[in-house]
């Protein structure tokens, strides 16, 4: 039963830029159906961890294991197979500025499926409608707002119905209502598509609303100092740094 096996396993991961070690000794597992939150203060290496998980940066030491397969020990074709089941929403959306929204969402479909152009158009329209951007098909990324760009990026990330979705600071720069809608969308995606979601964020509201598991990175000790359900962490954690983070510094130290 693959359901019992962890989907992603991070084993003794050390992240470094050259000689500068960002984080060391990271060990955690992401289960199927989790909404896994990577949290921690600004600049502690959350986004760097995400880059390691999605295959953009090779670890200095340690492994990222997808479904029992060591990602960084695999050859290029195998890595590509793994990444095909993954969708990533980057911080700024990372839409291709030379393509319209529809072309952006259609790109992965054109690359990986044999659908006819008409079918692709239909799917693109549905994906854009899911993120509330129906009717914006022919707009270029430079013509829409930052929040809309982020949602369009989500539509593109979902284009191939990936099993795992990564979000890099999804609610940063969004107004509270949009941020809440995005949280709802993430929950619905998990329920309807059975997707596993990994979120990098430091928005407390989001963390408590959607997170079912988490890892807490601490920049001072350069490693993870806590993990588990964020709500349980808030109730039970005795670590001052974790408590200060989860209570907006009201329980300081």
């Amino acid at each position: 039963m693959s359901f019992l096996k962890p989907l992603i396993e991070v084993v003794n991961l050390t992240m470094a830029y050259g000689d500068f070690v960002v984080m060391r000794g990271l060990n955690f597992t992401i289960q199927r159906g989790d909404i896994f939150v990577i949290m921690g203060g600004s600049g502690c290496g959350k986004s760097t961890l995400l880059r390691h998980l999605v295959g953009l940066k090779a670890p200095a030491r340690g492994q990222v294991v997808y479904d029992g397969v060591d990602f960084w020990g695999s050859d290029f074709a195998k890595q590509n197979d793994i990444m095909r089941n993954v969708g990533v929403l980057f911080q700024s959306g990372a839409l291709f500025s030379s393509l319209t929204l529809a072309q952006n969402v259609a790109l992965p479909l054109e690359e990986y499926t044999d659908l006819r152009p008409a079918q692709i158009r239909e799917i693109v329209a549905v994906k854009l409608a899911l993120v509330g951007l129906a009717g914006f098909e022919s707009y270029f990324p430079s013509e829409i707002s930052g929040g809309m760009r982020k949602r369009a990026g989500l539509a593109r990330a979902m284009a191939l119905d990936p099993q795992i979705l990564f979000f890099d600071e999804p609610s940063a720069g969004l107004d509270p209502v949009s941020a809440h809608r995005l949280d709802d969308l993430i929950l619905q995606l998990r329920e309807s598509l059975g997707a596993t979601v990994v979120v990098v964020t430091h928005e407390l509201a989001s963390i408590f609303a959607i997170g079912s598991n988490s890892v807490f990175l601490d920049p001072q000790s350069r490693t993870m100092i806590a993990g588990g359900d964020p709500n349980a962490l808030l109730a039970a954690s005795r670590d001052a740094r974790v408590r200060a983070f989860l209570t907006r510094g009201e329980e300081d130290g």
Binding site: R51, V54, G55, L56, N80, M83, R84, V86, G87, V88, F90, Q91, S92, A94, L95, F96, S97, L107, P108, E111, Y112, G153, R156
Partner: peptide
């Protein structure tokens, strides 16, 4: 500019 805008990262994660 595509590098700055994470567009090249996005391509890579799409396996392109």
């Amino acid at each position: 500019t595509m590098q700055v805008n994470e567009e090249i990262d996005a391509l890579e994660t799409m396996g392109i």
